[in-house]
Computed example of a mutant assay.
Amino acid sequence: MARSRSPLYVLFLTVFIDLVGFGIIIPVLPLYAEEFHAGPVAIGWLTGIYSGMQIIFTPILGRLSDRYGRRPVLMLSLAGTAVGFLLMGLAQTLTLLFVARIIAGITGGNISIPQAYIADVTTPEERSKWMGMIGAAFWLGFTFGPMIGGIMSRVSHSAPFYVAAVMAAVNVVVLYFILPESLPKEQRSQPHKDTSIAEVFRHGNGWMFGLVVATYFFLVAGFTIMTTLFALFTSRRFG
């Protein structure tokens, strides 16, 4: 039997706010980095290092949420995201900007936690619907975030980072007061042997699974290249 749906709407709002905060910095990050004399290669690394940290720490955050609960790990990750955004706004050197991006990337790999939360509180019949809702929240946040970031950049190139930090902090407060824990203590797992990449492919129908992964990789890579360089392109082409 599924529990009350109200926590799922809170979770929808949480993911939406999280992605608005993430999207806010997309239009301004390359231009902001140029203020620290970063070239195109450095800007590419500045973008990529965030995702690189997410690749490493997303499964770690997922395992921590299995052991300690969804709510505290999600709150901690959002608090770290707020710190990362704040440091980006306060950065006075390119090195500090990289450090801030690393912090934000480490704590930003939290999308698996809302998905696990949904699995905890929904029936199999409702699960795909709510997974789709989380996907919708993701893309809604990604839609409105860059628009807000573009508007805030009229104040200064650092202003969007402060707004993103505030939104992440608001998210922590919302979670603390409204979102209940979904994973009872008796159901939390103990540390176990990690699954290797080879095992994932072996149990994922081999080459078919690899083809899906490769397709998604190139899709996301193309999208990331466009979003990373689009601000620089439009700035140089149209002034």
Rank of each mutant, 00 (worst) to 15 (best):
S4A: 15
S4C: 06
T14L: 06
F16C: 10
I17W: 07
G21Q: 00
I24W: 01
I24K: 01
I25G: 05
I25L: 07
P27A: 02
L31S: 08
Y32T: 00
P40L: 15
A42C: 13
G44F: 02
G48V: 02
G48R: 06
S51E: 11
M53C: 12
Q54G: 14
I60G: 13
I60D: 10
L61W: 12
R63D: 08
R63C: 08
R70T: 01
R71N: 13
R71T: 04
R71I: 01
S77I: 00
L78G: 15
G80S: 05
V83K: 05
F85M: 05
L86I: 00
L97E: 06
G105W: 12
P114K: 11
A119K: 00
V121Y: 08
E126D: 10
S128K: 04
K129C: 08
M131A: 09
G135N: 06
L140P: 08
P146Q: 04
S153N: 12
H157P: 05
A164H: 02
M167Q: 12
Y176G: 10
Y176T: 03
Y176P: 09
F177G: 13
I178W: 15
P180Y: 10
E181A: 10
K185G: 09
S189V: 02
P191F: 04
H192V: 05
H192C: 14
K193I: 03
D194K: 13
I197R: 09
V200S: 10
R202N: 08
G206R: 04
M208K: 14
G210H: 14
L211G: 14
V212P: 14
F217A: 01
F217I: 00
L219G: 09
V220T: 05
V220M: 07
L229V: 05
F230M: 09
A231E: 01
T234A: 08
S235M: 14
S235A: 12
R236V: 02
R237H: 14
G239Y: 09
